[in-house]
């Protein structure tokens, strides 16, 4: 409807690892694709991530993790979104995952997992195709 409707994305790093280069690279790639990217830094709890996503009214949350705590934090983000009636926000993940964990995460509601080696433009194209800015509110 509105051409100026802009996609808003939250890039968040749950867990205790401090390696946020990947998160910053993807934030930059999304910026260059014309999206508005909120970046909140390292060491975020799922609670902080969901609260930020709601206040910032994002369409997409990208979770970046290298520490191995995805098995807890990713499904927890989905759970909290549901509790807050915000399950319309799409969640994707990136980082290092044991192969057998990926179907489990998708089962839990993570829309897509991007592993090391994925091209940035592939991720941007995926977002373009799968995530749309939501409709306007009416009084």
């Amino acid at each position: 409807m509105n051409k100026s409707r802009k996609l808003r994305i939250l890039i968040a790093k749950p867990g205790l690892d401090g390696h946020d280069r990947g998160a910053r690279v993807i934030a930059r790639a999304f910026r260059d694709a014309g999206f508005e990217v909120v970046y909140t830094g390292c060491h975020q709890t799922p609670e902080q991530i969901v609260s930020t996503a709601i206040q910032e009214d994002v369409d997409l949350i990208g979770l970046s993790i290298l520490s191995g705590a995805h098995a807890y934090s990713f499904p927890r983000v989905i759970e909290l979104l549901k509790e807050n009636n915000a399950e319309d926000i799409t969640v994707i993940g990136g980082g290092i995952f044991p192969l057998e964990d990926i179907p489990v995460l998708k089962e839990a509601g993570i829309k897509e997992i991007f592993e090391p080696g994925t091209k940035l433009h592939e991720i941007c194209a995926w977002v373009d195709q799968n995530v749309k800015p939501r409709q306007a509110m009416v009084a």
Binding site: R31, G34, E36, V38, Y39
Partner: peptide
């Protein structure tokens, strides 16, 4: 150039 932005004040 792209209309995109990185919003980092929350950090």
């Amino acid at each position: 150039f792209t209309g995109g932005a990185i919003l980092g004040d929350r950090i």
